[in-house]
Amino acid sequence: MSEEKDAWWGPVALLMLLIGFSMDLLVWQLSGGTEFSLILDRVLLGFTLAFGLTTLALLLVSLGAVHRHVRWHEQMIGLTLLAGLGLSLTNWQIGGSIDAMFDEGVILLSGITAMMAAVGLVFGLLLALVTGREHTPDPLLEMDSTHGDVSLELEE
């Protein structure tokens, strides 16, 4: 890539933001709008629940993989505290209902699987398309190895 193209992520990030914003604007226009407090509540609930579940999952993975060389005190105690904090905040937000927490957790898993399917589809297709390009043969690939046996002829 040339130097002018190095900052490619700037316009691409702007494009992503624009598309995401346009999709929300479309739904806003079709639905007649919604309350910002509702959006904020849902974003906060999603954040705390996902934070709690992710740290809990990482705590379990760390517990499973713990070995004598690992400095586990900070990791285990820290993850336990963070998971407890995230899940307690979620529980407080939804009025102390454990069943509601399970339901929201399922919606989170549903969203994650949908996200993985979409990302896998796009990158799988991109990989298949990119690997289909024909390249001019590389002479370096045709060369045989000398297994390190090299002799140099230096010009006097």
Binding site: L38, G46, F47, L49, A50, F51, G52, I107, L108
Partner: peptide, 9 residues
Amino acid sequence: MFLIGGLMG
């Protein structure tokens, strides 16, 4: 919106 928050979480 819940899932956007979830992704950030």
